[in-house]
Each structure stands twice: as C-alpha cells, then as structure tokens.
Amino acid sequence: MTIIYLLLAISVLVALAFFAAFIFSVKSGQYDDVYTPSVRMLFDDELVKPATKKNKITPNKIVKTNKHN
C-alpha cells in the first residue's frame, strides 16, 4: 500500500498543474474580458471572406473608380 504515497504525489502534482494554469490565465488577462472573445470567435470565418471576395470584385471596382474619375 505504500503506492499511496506515489498516488498522492501525482494527485497533488496534477492539481498544482491546473492551479498554475489558472493563475497563468488570470495573469494574462483572460478573465478581464469574458464577453468579446465569444463574439470574436464567430468572425473567424468571415475574416477570410473579404480576401477571397477581393479577387472577384476587383474588375467591378476598377469600373467603379473609372466612373468616379
């Protein structure tokens, strides 16, 4: 049953690891704003969209700028 010493050591180490992770996350400001990231996450797909669109739209855009001139 002396294995219990090892088990205890492991359990305490695992707990400490999670505790350290928590401290790190607070310190790095992850708990300062808990709302915006939830919205920002939804934009991840859309951030790419303008870039791909750009290629298709370019001809139109040239026509438009010509009009202005």
Binding site: A15, F19, F22, I23, V26, K27, Y31
Partner: peptide, 19 residues
Amino acid sequence: AKDRSLTYKLGVAGFAFGN
C-alpha cells in the same frame, strides 16, 4: 493595473477546498 486579487483568492480557496 486591474485588481485581480479577488479572482486569485477565490482560485486559491477553491483549489485548497477541493483537495
């Protein structure tokens, strides 16, 4: 400087409480 001490204290207490 943001005051995060309450979050830390709560974290420490929760961690100790569980264990």
